[in-house]
Simulated assay, not measured.
Amino acid sequence: MDITIYHNARCGTSRNALAAIREAGHEPQVVDYLATPLSREQLRELIAAVGLPVREAIRSKEAAFAELGLDAPGTGDEALLDAMAAHPVLLNRPFVVTPKGTRLCRPYELVKEIL
Rank of each mutant, 00 (worst) to 15 (best):
M1G: 13
D2H: 15
I3P: 01
I3V: 11
Y6Q: 14
H7Y: 03
H7W: 11
R10E: 11
R10Y: 09
C11F: 10
T13Q: 00
T13Y: 04
R15Q: 08
R15Y: 04
N16W: 07
N16E: 09
A17L: 03
L18H: 08
L18D: 05
L18N: 02
A19V: 15
A19H: 14
A20E: 06
I21D: 02
R22F: 15
R22C: 10
H26Y: 12
H26G: 02
Q29E: 05
V30R: 03
V31P: 00
V31C: 02
Y33N: 04
Y33L: 05
A35M: 11
A35P: 02
A35V: 03
T36R: 10
T36W: 02
T36G: 09
P37C: 11
P37W: 06
L38C: 00
L38F: 02
S39Y: 09
S39P: 02
E41C: 08
Q42I: 01
Q42Y: 03
E45V: 13
E45W: 15
I47Q: 00
I47Y: 06
A49R: 14
A49F: 07
V50T: 12
L52R: 01
L52F: 09
V54E: 04
R55Y: 06
R55S: 09
E56L: 10
A57M: 01
S60M: 14
K61W: 14
K61D: 00
K61F: 02
K61G: 05
E62F: 06
A63H: 02
A63R: 05
A64G: 00
A64Y: 03
F65L: 00
F65W: 13
F65G: 02
A66V: 13
E67L: 12
L68H: 15
L68C: 13
G69C: 06
L70V: 03
D71Y: 12
A72H: 10
P73L: 13
P73A: 08
P73I: 07
G74S: 15
T75K: 13
D77Y: 10
D77T: 15
E78G: 02
E78L: 07
A79Y: 11
A79R: 10
A79F: 08
L80W: 01
L80M: 00
L80H: 03
A83N: 14
A83T: 07
M84N: 04
A86E: 14
H87F: 13
H87L: 04
V89S: 13
V89E: 05
V89Q: 15
V89W: 08
V89P: 09
L90M: 10
L91F: 02
N92E: 11
N92Y: 01
R93F: 08
R93Q: 10
P94T: 07
F95T: 04
V96A: 09
V97Y: 04
V97E: 03
V97Q: 05
P99N: 00
K100L: 11
G101T: 12
T102V: 13
R103Q: 10
L104S: 00
L104F: 12
L104I: 01
C105A: 12
R106D: 05
Y108M: 07
E109W: 14
E109S: 06
L110D: 06
L110F: 13
L110P: 01
V111P: 07
V111E: 03
K112P: 06
E113F: 03
E113L: 14
I114S: 01
